[in-house]
């Protein structure tokens, strides 16, 4: 069965989606990622969609679900590399990708994840 590889990098999981997702592949990715978060205790998930030429409401829902489930598992999700035409289309479609953070590229996405985790870790001291 086709699978999208998930790479571990320290506290983070990295996923690069390089093929147009069909339904089963997208659903496998969702369950694989959640299991990886649980197994590795990852604090962040970075999803690179720079190779995707379209994101429809089905794929948007999968991405949103990954964000929501990861959140419950105590990990933040950042989607990076969205093509400009895809962004324009998503907004017109009415999809807001709630529950996930977005960043322009992998580098900024990593930075965002690090900041999020630092803020969370420093919060208890302030109280």
């Amino acid at each position: 069965m086709d699978r999208i590889p998930i790479l571990r990098m320290g506290n983070f999981l990295l996923v690069t989606i390089q093929v147009d997702l069909y339904d089963r592949l997208a659903q496998n990715l969702e369950s694989d990622l959640v299991q990886m978060v649980s197994k590795t205790g990852a604090r962040g998930v970075l999803i690179d969609i720079s190779a995707l030429s379209i994101v429809d409401s089905f794929m948007g829902r999968i991405i949103g679900n990954i964000g929501s489930v990861s959140k419950i598992m105590d990990a933040e999700t950042v989607v990076v590399g969205m093509q400009p035409a895809v962004a324009i289309t998503l907004i017109e479609l009415g999809l807001e990708l709630k529950g996930v953070h977005t960043a322009l590229n992998v580098e900024r996405g990593m930075q965002l994840l690090k900041e999020k985790i630092l803020i969370e870790e420093s919060e208890p001291d302030e109280e």
Binding site: S53, I54, T89
Partner: peptide
């Protein structure tokens, strides 16, 4: 952009 809208 129009291609992307059409295909979506």
């Amino acid at each position: 952009v129009n291609q992307t809208k059409l295909i979506t």
